[in-house]
Design a protein around this nucleic acid. Structure first.
Length: 746
DNA sequence: TTAATTTGCACCTAC
DNA sequence: TGCAAATTAA
């Protein structure tokens, strides 16, 4: 193939792409074509004869990975036959090393079907251990201990090492809990997120042969967002790159915003000393933002001390000044943002998806959401409570996890009393004692409940039924497809019927979530015909909410600044720019500098226009508190700012208040919290929205997985519209029209 | 054992 | 304010 695609690179980008051998550091400012360099570099490597499977490309989110995979496939002219066929070499650290661990599990004493614990699961384990030791949760906050353990693991400090360096009583307790925690996870054939990074290190250190294999396989390493790597990721890269030394990292120290989960800014600051003969390229030309936005961003970041030298410039037009909006309170802030979006979308012919509203903390989304509902502007919230963390979904997942890995005690505890079977804390405690005594799992203990004297007859019966159920599903799992199995479980547990009986809005919401979950499984299956249950479970645990974000939908996006990293929008609103909120209270200089980088990230998302919003008063902890403008606002050169003062209540706003109260009574607005993308946009789709077929009872439709079927019933309306479709002889499915991607056949 | 009620705390982000 | 844990009643 020819490499004439290289002509759309600027000189520095071109050099960075064509530098093939040896370590390479690409310092890429915001909007300077970082992703472009990475994708073009992969394409270039392939064009000079490097086989794709010799390239490993690591990103921080699945979204970034998918985007790059698509772009690269396109450049290489690779057909996208089944999303994954050419994609095994690109992904997040966690997912790729998770896959390697599945293959190599035996070498580190794990079974191939290990469970992956999320933070909630780990936290439960930590609590369990503290309780066993009679340690007060008031003195030893479980969440703090869990965070410390996670930090230790991210820093590649093993329990034995930490034990020796323990200085305080808290250290001793942490060391003790850490040791037991590791032991429990191993016994339960489970790993937490951090294990997915630290276990490969242990494997490679211990097993030369394994390291050799992967060093040879991944002869070219590319890493995105290098400034956000932690110690474990750093060590992992060092090990893999040792032999061929072809490590190319791309990042921007000014955008390092994850120190709280162990990211070490030092990694990127030290790259040149770690790899002395490395080539360094600086991408300083910005293609995204207007001149004024860029000047403002630069004037913010100069206030930081700890950084590499770099100043972004652009050939783009100067553009408009940044507008500072002052509001009376958080409600007023929402109102003003909604008004601005209305005006601008008409005036500048912008679509709703061109706007994003950013905030520092998730709770701020509530007030904004209310404003969007009242204003009738479709919106999408990204983040918040991730889909797969919702109770009803985790409960169902617990069954699947237990079927795959019967040693998984956390999943046992979840599943055994869902729906309620009269198995409570007391019975669990008896099972725990027995299991500990026999050195076995809770599931095994439950199977032998007859041998445990303290357990009541009634509970024994229930446990027997439960174990029978799990065993039945284990037998069924090879005969049924993934979605059939899940549907069988959810049908037999009668979860939907039980929720229907509850009849509350929350219950209805849960039913919808469960239905969406079932559709999600069907989609996974059609994307991955060979995909196993265990692969589905890993994927589910490792997706972020941004990954599920549908960028095609024509709605305003609401998200945290963290979630917005790597994204761009024509118009950006940064809300809540007040002391104590953005920046959040910082104890140390480093923390304040990270808040400033976060603000820098927020501003540099914008292409054309930035609004910076702050309020005089805001509800915090349920009561009104006085707010002062963020120091960051005064750090921006004042000739770049326009200020819009808070004005007294206008007639227009009074009308808004009145209609707002009124429309709150309307049934379509009766949901309050926990809203995310699937329930958020209450308005009909605008012109650009995904085309949704007009269905009626009797229509023949095609589903990519289930095939052709006949619509026999329709429920709900708007975004909640669902259809019951009869596929084949008697396979009835209820699908959400918005997600099922049905094609109207007749 | 569970459901109902009160209390207590958080508003720090996410693979 | 809004949720989760703790406490009490049934």
């Amino acid at each position: 193939m020819t490499a004439d695609f290289l002509k759309d690179l600027n000189p520095v980008q071109l050099q960075a792409v064509k530098c093939v051998e040896g370590p390479e550091l690409v310092l890429a400012g915001a909007g300077s074509g970082k992703t472009k360099v990475l994708t073009y570099r992969v394409a270039y490597l392939v064009s000079i004869g490097v086989p794709l499977h010799n390239i490993l490309c690591l990103t921080f989110t699945n979204k970034a990975a998918n985007e790059m995979r698509t772009r690269i496939n396109k450049m290489l002219g690779v057909e996208e036959s089944g999303k994954r066929s050419y994609g095994s070499w690109i992904g997040t650290f966690h997912s790729l090393f998770g896959k390697i661990l599945r293959v190599e599990s035996k070498r580190i004493g794990y079974d191939q079907n290990f469970s992956i614990y999320d933070e909630d699961d780990s936290l439960r384990k930590v609590k369990e251990i503290l309780r066993e030791r009679n340690l007060s949760e008031d003195v030893y906050a479980p969440a703090a201990i869990r965070a410390r353990i996670s930090k230790l693991k991210n820093s590649v400090i093993l329990p034995s090492q930490f034990e020796q360096s323990a200085k305080s009583r808290l250290d001793e307790v942490t060391a003790d809990v850490y040791t037991t925690y590791e032991d429990r996870l191993k016994k339960g054939n489970a790993m937490d997120f951090d294990d997915l990074l630290i276990k490969p290190i242990l494997l490679f250190n211990r097993d030369r042969e394994a390291l050799d294999k992967y060093q040879n396989r991944f002869r070219f390493l590319l890493v995105d967002e290098y400034q956000d790597t932690n110690r474990a990721q750093y060590v992992l890269l060092k090990l893999l790159a040792e032999k061929h030394r072809n490590l190319c990292v791309v990042g921007d120290d000014a955008q390092s915003i994850y120190s709280w989960r162990g990211a070490e800014l030092q990694n990127i600051l030290d790259f040149q000393t770690d790899y002395p003969n490395c080539k360094v390229f600086r991408l300083e030309q910005n293609y995204r933002s207007t001149g004024k936005i860029l000047k403002a961003a630069n004037s913010i970041i100069v206030h930081n001390k700890r950084k590499l030298d770099k100043e972004l410039w652009t050939e783009n037009l100067d553009g408009e000044k940044l507008t500072v909006i002052e509001s009376e309170n958080d409600r007023d802030e929402g109102y003003k943002i909604v008004q601005k979006i209305r005006d601008e979308s008409i005036k500048d012919k912008l679509q709703l998806k061109d706007f994003v509203v950013l905030y520092r903390t998730n709770y701020q989304s509530r007030a904004l959401e209310e404003a969007f509902n009242r204003g009738g502007i479709p919106y999408v919230i990204v983040g918040g409570l991730a889909f797969y963390k919702r109770k009803e979904i985790k409960d169902l997942l617990a069954y699947l996890r237990l079927v795959v890995n019967p040693l998984d005690d956390e999943s046992f505890i979840r599943a055994v009393n869902f729906p309620p079977r009269g198995i409570g804390d007391v019975t669990i405690e008896y099972l725990r004692d027995f299991a500990a005594d026999q050195g076995t799992s809770l599931f095994n203990a439950a199977n032998r409940a007859g041998e445990i004297g303290q357990i009541q007859q009634r509970q024994r019966g229930q446990l027997r039924l439960f174990c029978g159920l799990i065993e039945k599903y284990s037998r069924l799992k090879d005969g049924l497809s993934l979605s059939e199995l899940t549907r069988t479980i959810s049908d037999e547990l009668q979860v939907i019927r039980l929720l229907k009986e509850e009849g509350t809005p929350e219950a209805r919401n849960r039913i919808e979530n469960i239905q969406e979950f079932l559709v999600g499984i069907a989609e996974f299956q059609s994307d991955n015909p060979q995909g196993t249950l265990q692969e589905f479970l890993s994927e589910v645990t490792l997706v972020a909410d941004v990954d599920r974000w549908d960028t095609q939908r024509n709605a305003v996006t609401l998200m945290t600044v963290h979630a917005a990293k790597g994204l761009e929008f024509p118009v950006v609103f940064v809300s809540g720019l007040e002391e104590g909120l953005f920046p959040l209270p910082a104890k140390e200089q480093d923390e304040l500098e990270e808040e400033r980088r976060l603000f820098y990230v927020a501003v540099t998302r914008a292409e054309k226009k930035v609004y910076l919003s702050h309020t005089r008063e805001r509800y915090r902890f349920g009561k009104l508190s006085f707010q002062t403008p963020s120091r960051f606002l005064s750090e921006i050169e004042s000739n770049l700012l326009d200020r819009e003062r808070s004005s007294r209540q206008t007639a227009q706003r009074a009308l808004w208040e009145a209609t707002g109260t009124f429309s709150q009574l309307a049934p379509s607005l009766d949901h309050v919290d926990g809203a995310t993308e699937e329930e958020a946009a209450k308005q009909p789709e605008h012109k650009e929205g995904r085309s949704i077929p007009k269905l009626k009872v009797g229509s023949i439709v095609h589903h990519q997985f289930f095939g052709d079927g006949k619509v026999i019933d329709m429920l709900g309306k708007g975004d909640n519209e669902r259809v019951v479709v009869l596929f084949g002889a008697n396979q009835k499915k209820q699908l959400m029209v918005r997600y099922a991607n049905l094609r109207l056949v007749k």
